[in-house]
């Protein structure tokens, strides 16, 4: 029944998670952030990428949760993992050791070079809003082979100028990764509820390369704080398939029941 429903209607949030899941490959070793990244990574595992290795920073390696974790260290992650390592080992041997192909992050604010802020809104010493902080993100951003970011678009989140950089995308000018000698690629995809951005090969500015069905360029601009640029070829994101939607809705429903919130 869900599959029938799925074929006819989906939300922009579902489109975002499905598009994000499709970016992952079966052979990836993925460091998973909590929330939307976790939904996308597990959708990939349950559809086209059954062999993907999912790693959460609590130390769980090759975990296969049946429900999406609320926290980064729910028991479900440990019980379904191949192995669970101590947290210092996770950050030293596995992340810093260069064994992760993709880091999957979300954030509160982002700029056109895909730098992220999850620390403060306003002045650091006297913040308007104190956000949770960086957690693992500063080192995930530079130690993983590449970074995928998933974030819903709005003027408040897609900022012309980021006052505080919690984790580096391509830097404030687009050249910082090279200047600092960082060998990894940084953000190669930014998947939103409206479209997909990829870095311009020359400037590293995030440019739109695929627009979700029914979304206009005007709507993308209205929800972005900088003048949006488009790639040389802009495609239309394929709609979610009935199977993708059914699997996503099933795991989200199992999660709702399990968390009892």
């Amino acid at each position: 029944m869900q599959a029938t429903l799925a074929a006819t209607a989906y939300t922009s949030n579902e489109m975002m998670i499905v598009a994000a899941a499709r970016a992952l490959r079966n052979e990836d070793v993925c460091f998973v952030g909590i929330g939307a990244p976790s939904a996308a990574c597990n959708l990939a595992r349950l559809t086209h990428a059954p062999g993907i290795t999912l790693i959460y920073e609590s130390g769980t390696i090759a975990t296969r949760p049946n429900v999406l974790p609320l926290s980064i260290g729910d028991g479900e992650l440990c019980e379904t993992a191949l192995t669970t390592v101590p947290v210092p080992e996770m950050f030293r041997y596995w992340l810093q050791g260069g064994r992760i192909t993709v880091g999957f992050l979300g954030g509160a604010q982002i700029d056109r070079f895909a730098n992220l802020n999850t620390t403060v809104v306003g002045d650091y010493a006297k913040p308007k809003v104190r956000l949770p902080g960086g957690g693992g993100a500063p080192e995930i951003a530079t130690n993983c082979g590449e970074i995928f970011i998933i974030m819903a678009q709005s003027q408040r989140a897609f900022m012309k100028d980021l006052r505080f950089v919690t984790s580096m995308g391509h830097g404030r000018t687009g050249r910082e990764r090279r200047d600092l000698g960082v060998k990894t690629k940084g953000p190669t995809r930014l998947i939103t509820d409206l479209c997909v951005f990829e870095p311009d090969p020359d400037t590293a500015e995030m440019t739109v390369t695929s627009i979700h069905p029914g979304v206009t360029r005007e709507r993308i601009q209205e929800n972005t704080g900088w003048p949006v640029r488009y790639g040389a070829a802009v495609g239309e994101t394929p709609e979610p398939t009935a199977d993708e939607l059914a699997v996503l809705r099933e795991i989200q429903e199992r999660t709702r029941r399990a968390h009892g919130g």
Binding site: M90, Y124, G135, P138, T142
Partner: peptide
Amino acid sequence: HSHAAMANAYEAGAANLPFAILRGYLGVDL
């Protein structure tokens, strides 16, 4: 701090070292 720095700093404390090193905090404002 970042998680990686805190985890390393605990390890350094347990190892009776004065400080911890990591490849981190690159290009960020912390």
